[in-house]
Write a protein that binds this DNA or RNA. Structure first.
Lengths: 205, 205
DNA sequence: ATTGTCTGACTGTATAGTCAGTCATATGAC
DNA sequence: GTCATATGACTGACTATACAGTCAGACAAT
């Protein structure tokens, strides 16, 4: 369908514009220019600017979490699933470069604002993804590969750690290949930094 | 000095306005209203809106990292220092509630933008703080309490994990007391999630 | 001729930034 | 002590501009 194609085209253009100009500098006119259409055309597909930007962010989240879920589903054990999760997430950070820059550089969409009742929905998507991670870890605890601990917190921490890697990449602060980042993250999350075989210093706490 | 007092007053008002209205909805007029002065007065202390907002964020970062450094300096061992770091950071998240909401809901200031050459400075402050954490961990590795690993990455991950806790609090997603959050974070960062004494499942990787 | 898609000049509005003028206090002349 | 002058902090009506959103008409395609 032509309509759907146009919508996607405009949303992609929106992501590109926000990625390069920030939300502040992203005007409807610039989006139209980027999509190579007239400003008025944008309003044939979206009610207003807010709807346009909300839709762009939402499409991005849906695409990303959808792909992660699909890939993770192929793995069997909790450990393999987490490996997959981290690897796929980081790989996608290159594919979705523009979108992630958009997402990371602006978090307003998570804040409830008077003219943003859709923000609540965005928050739901975000929480759903964390919950998805939480369940994998919970499984691991049940099976015994992960020790009993506050799973809600560790799911959250893992997600934030991944997010941090995205950011480093978006800001161009690292040259490490994705696979290396994934390995480091996994190792850290699994084993922590403490020297388990130490016999020198004072004990923890 | 009266001038300094006024400047601080305006910056505090800016943080409050941004915290409640977001960067989008934060106008100079609203800031003036919040500070109980006329709009024109703002321009006696700041060249333009950009400078005002940049200064507000910068003041917040400086205050925060300064306090963390002071408190951490009192601790002796790397482990104690990290404990202190996490605890103090989370405690401050209540004190600086408005500022953190401001900071977390908007990351544009980290992105280089044409009319934001100061953004580079902001990035420096951010990186300096991570470097500060990095050195503590590095010390721990040197002494032997922490195992050898990619310290740059773990410093980064720890900072992002703390940031994540801030965000949960700013968005009102958790009711956990700060000290509990600190404990969970510390435990996770030190020990990881893996069951070290397991003898059931497959080995890692 | 009709329909569907698109255009871009136009308008209305919000708000950044200005500036002529007010007020309060300090300094000084007598 | 009283008036005159100066200084500096502050004000808010005003302007200039940028940008969201509109709409009358162009342009295929059938």
């Amino acid at each position: 369908m032509l309509r759907e194609f146009r919508v996607r085209e405009i949303l992609d253009a929106t992501c590109r514009v926000v990625a390069s100009h920030g939300f502040q500098g992203a005007t409807v006119e610039r989006v139209a220019e980027e999509a190579e259409i007239a400003k008025g055309t944008v309003y044939l597909y979206f009610q207003n600017k807010d709807e346009l930007f909300t839709a762009a962010v939402e499409q991005g989240i849906q695409n990303f979490t959808g792909q992660v879920r699909t890939q993770v589903a192929e793995a069997l054990t909790p450990i393999e699933k987490l490996q997959r999760l981290i690897e796929v997430s980081l790989e996608l950070s290159d594919t979705y470069r523009d979108f992630f820059k958009t997402l990371l550089l602006e978090r307003n969409f998570l804040a409830a604002s008077p003219n943003h009742p859709e923000a609540a929905h965005m928050l739901d998507l975000y929480l759903a993804h964390i919950h998805f991670i939480e369940e994998i870890i919970q499984d691991g605890v049940r099976v015994g590969v992960f020790r009993p601990h506050n799973v809600e917190a560790s799911a959250f921490v893992l997600n934030e750690a991944i997010r941090g890697c995205f950011q480093q990449r978006a800001l161009g602060l690292t040259a490490r290949p994705v696979s290396e980042d994934a390995g480091i993250l996994l190792d850290l999350f699994f084993n922590g930094v403490l020297n388990q075989h130490q016999n020198h210093e004072e004990p923890v706490s």
